[in-house]
Design a protein around this nucleic acid. Structure first.
Lengths: 363, 363
DNA sequence: CTGAAAGCGCTAACAG
DNA sequence: CTGTTAGCGCTTTCAG
């Protein structure tokens, strides 16, 4: 008989495993479910004994608090939406890695969405986040996003919003970026200091703020050291390894004189290096190269490629921390938005390590 | 007067923007909220006219369906939990990229959790997913997970669960993996075919199935071609670039004869290449090298490194598709679990491209 | 074709 | 210290 009862209970348990609620715990202990709720939430006005027994039976019955229900009631989901262009780009996956780590320590979970660099997908992502009632949104805009349409609505709904790296221009919201201007300046200054004078800059054709800033840094560094700007040395295209190769081929074919190349990002720099090597140019003796992003391969290829590190994981951690501060305040849009700008790190490697010319000495 | 009314309405709208419900739409149209609900869900028994007007006022009022409420009621969240060791490893971020893409197309959103290779974090992630009432879980286990404890509970609760790449040994659940045995075999066979005979294999010390399989492939290839196994050529450690260098230093210091190295993964192979170059060994003439994973840098360094491609994005897409099939069935654990095994791709590059010795010709 | 009503599992105000 | 009660916003029967 006792065996039969046990067996029945076991079956019931297995069957109902996924629907154990605080009411079930309450019934077991002959108390009301609100007491159970309070005990589980460690409410101060509950006796230690009650808390203990509640926790035990919760454990025994395999109770899992239903976040959906508590979210509906409390209006807080403890979920943060993260919208990135794409996760198979190491820059973004590193940042998300950093964000998730910090958010997770603070009890938040990450809802992930990729815009695939498309404006339409981006808006779909925001719509999804809004419907999911996320407690906040962290985003980096797609290349297509020139005007931040859907983001305005997030602010109107008073949902915390912050950006990293790619920030929409007109929107006045918190953000974490690196100082792309400084990055461009440092890279160019370093090339000048190493004695290079005819410095090519490969940028891209879209009107993206961070990319324009790198260009501006390049231009200002030239000006600062009295080097004339030659428009033929400023090339715009769509960044890729192949485009880097193409640029070098074109420069050589057109007989344009140059002794260094500073590229928008590392894959382009890699293409430049490959094509220079193929053309018998010595790096860094004849041509210096500096990339941008500190992709893993830049320290492994030969010559190792000088580049500008964007401090990706830190960026993720900082945006998460900034965000947690935001969440504590009630009115996110009443305060002046905090804009954190990280200093990039210039990594000087073989591709630009020529003998030193002090910048002040001029030509 | 009319101006005042408009102003008041505007203020109210802005203020209530985030709390527009189906009830508000219903009031506007003098119908009941259940009609509104049906209209929004495109229920067949609602007139086209009603649907039209409901949709228009929904749009006008800035209505956003509350997924939290519908999830609570329907018991479905349309959210899939993804648990990966860490997102700053390109393998995992690529897979997640693939998964998100397919899931997103099918109306699911991704809740992301990183175990950071820790068993404790892994269990926290599962707990979070359970509490969030995700509709399913896709995971790749941490290196610490030798026994799949928490995963069993997921199955007991009849929540769809599937693994990719790192699959817990005892659990009989659906999975997508690549054929690591084949990968190990192909890499070794290729080295043998290229005339290498004293082939070192660098593996690692933990008892991880996929890594053991690569070793098994290595051993079987040797046996198949009648090459004796030399235990001194099988090295175990913790994989890293530095460990690869260390292994080569040790081999050379101990005067162990070898002419090729097949490593568990690419960073170790990179270390091997670096140290071989530093020791003046010619690659591939004196020593051949093959890695595993097809990291971006392997095709960019010199010599380019032969490796085994794991088809990461495909793996993500396949696991997502397999999962969608699972979700359609009611009883996920009644059927025999589908285990998809992808064929790895051997990529022969410079580091192992020596003159060809037909495998059958022997030594 | 539309309305009425119940309830998903929890939080929190109010009452003892 | 514990119980009562009223929803959160939606889905889904059951009636018309």
């Amino acid at each position: 008989m006792i065996f039969l009862l046990l067996a029945v209970e076991l079956v019931i348990n297995l069957f109902d495993l996924k629907k154990v609620t605080i009411l079930d715990i309450a019934k077991e202990l002959n108390i009301t479910f609100s007491t159970v709720a309070r005990a589980l939430n460690d409410h101060p006005a509950i006796s230690a004994a009650t808390k203990q027994s509640v926790r035990e039976t919760a454990e025994r019955l395999g109770y899992r608090p239903n976040k959906v229900a508590s979210s509906l009631r409390s209006g807080k989901t403890k979920i943060i939406g993260i919208l990135v262009p794409r996760l198979d780009v190491s820059f973004f996956s590193s940042v998300v890695h950093g964000v998730e780590g910090v958010m997770n320590e603070n009890g938040y979970t990450i809802l992930l969405y990729q815009s695939q660099e498309s404006l339409k997908q981006e808006n779909k992502g925001i719509e999804t986040f809004l419907r999911s009632r996320v407690d906040g949104i962290i985003a980096s805009i797609s290349l297509e996003t020139e005007v931040a349409g859907s983001y305005a609505e997030i602010r109107d709904r008073n949902i915390p919003l912050a950006f990293f790296d790619r920030v929409p221009p007109e929107l006045n919201v918190p953000s974490v970026t690196i100082d792309d201007y400084r990055g461009g300046f440092m890279a160019t200054e370093h090339l000048i200091a190493s004695g290079y004078r005819r410095i090519v800059h490969i940028n891209q054709y879209r009107n993206i703020n961070i990319f324009n800033e790198r260009l501006r840094g390049y231009l200002d560094a030239l000006e600062r050291y009295g080097i004339p700007v030659d428009e033929r040395l400023i090339i715009r295209g769509d960044f890729s390894l192949e485009f880097g190769r193409q640029c070098v081929r074109d420069l050589l074919a057109e007989g344009i004189d140059f002794d260094a190349v500073f590229t928008l990002e590392d894959f382009t720099a890699m293409g430049v290096v490959q094509e220079l090597k193929a053309s018998g140019k010595r790096i860094p003796e004849e041509v210096g190269v500096v990339g941008f992003a500190n992709e893993a391969f830049t320290s492994l290829v030969s010559p190792t490629i000088s580049t500008v590190d964007q401090r990706t994981v830190e960026m993720g951690e900082e945006i998460a921390r900034l965000f947690l501060k935001l969440l504590k305040k009630g009115d996110y849009y009443k305060h002046k938005p905090e804009k954190l700008v990280l200093e990039p790190k210039l990594l000087i490697r073989e591709s630009s390590s020529r003998r030193h010319f002090p910048p002040s000495s001029g030509r």
